[in-house]
């Protein structure tokens, strides 16, 4: 299938691309979690024996089910099944597999007391909710539209709120927040980034570029050409946040949302 960047894009094509891209994102996320298994086994950090008492707030049957699924051994089994399901949906997008991916994503978020990786978990869950609904009710056009629309609206909201909050923050407006974040990443110091963070003019310009880009992102819904440009900028933006902050999961989670956004951008034609 060709990705028709500037040609009409049907809802079924958008759904198909979303299914494949979220499959890739979830597959990579699951491998990472399996690589980190020593961190959540019973001699690691996020031990179920430590966490389980927080879950006693749930009704007893729910707690019993979570206790069964989130203990180390069964959780590893859930992760392996998720790995297989995510690889399978790239080629065979069966509704049951998407429902399982949705459920396992909720379980992973619970296992990490809300989320493992914040924003990328939110977006993964949103795309999986949309794509599961659209796949289960594939024969009903209005449901497909609603599900793709939900993903598109949440994508625009994610950028708009992030930008709006920055615009309200004086340190961002004055270009002073960015150097602080650049110096507190998970990565070793980089001479280029160090020199950028010391240059006030570049920091001010970069801060406003981010604010304008994020606040202006909802205009992607205005027309498909503008949407393609903003998706391109979004891709570069997430590539940058991976290079600087190590946020690789964000790139794949947001990429999975872009086909739905592009489809919605051409709706008012």
């Amino acid at each position: 299938m060709n990705m028709p960047l500037l040609s009409p894009f049907t809802d079924l094509e958008a759904l198909s691309w979303t299914q494949k891209l979220i499959g890739v994102a979830v597959f990579l996320q699951t491998i990472e979690l399996l690589q980190l298994r020593s961190k959540f086994n019973e001699t690691g950090i996020w031990k179920w024996s430590t966490l389980q008492r927080e879950f006693q707030i749930f009704p007893r049957p729910v707690f019993a089910l979570l206790d069964f699924l989130l203990g180390y051994r069964n959780f590893i089994a859930v992760l392996f099944l998720r790995l297989i399901a995510s690889a399978t949906v790239i080629f065979f997008p069966h509704p049951a597999l998407f429902l399982f991916l949705l459920l396992s994503t909720v379980l992973i978020s619970l296992r990490w007391r809300g989320t493992f990786n914040g924003g990328s978990d939110f977006m993964t869950l949103i795309v999986l909710m949309g794509v599961s609904g659209a796949t289960v009710f594939r024969e009903i056009p209005i449901v497909r539209l609603a599900c793709l629309g939900y993903i598109a609206i949440q994508t625009c909201t994610s950028y708009f709120i992030a930008g709006f909050i920055k615009m309200k923050t004086s340190n961002w407006r004055r270009g002073k927040a960015l150097p602080g974040f650049l110096n507190a990443t998970i990565h070793d110091g980089n001479p280029l980034l160090n020199s950028i963070s010391r240059n006030r003019v570049i920091c001010l310009a970069a801060s406003w570029a981010v604010i304008v880009f994020e606040c202006g992102f909802p205009s992607a819904l205005l027309n498909p050409q503008l949407c393609v440009v903003l998706i391109g900028l979004g891709f570069l933006f997430h590539l940058g946040t991976w290079i600087i902050f190590g946020l690789n999961r964000f790139l794949f989670a947001w990429m999975a949302a872009y086909p739905a956004l592009y489809y919605c951008s051409q709706l008012h034609r």
Binding site: G118, G119, F122, M123, L125, I126, Q154, T157, S158, Y159, F160, I161, A162, I165, K166, T169, N171, W172, A177, F181
Partner: peptide, 8 residues
């Protein structure tokens, strides 16, 4: 979802 990334 909270989209308040890199707030301050």
């Amino acid at each position: 979802p909270s989209w308040r990334f890199f707030e301050d």
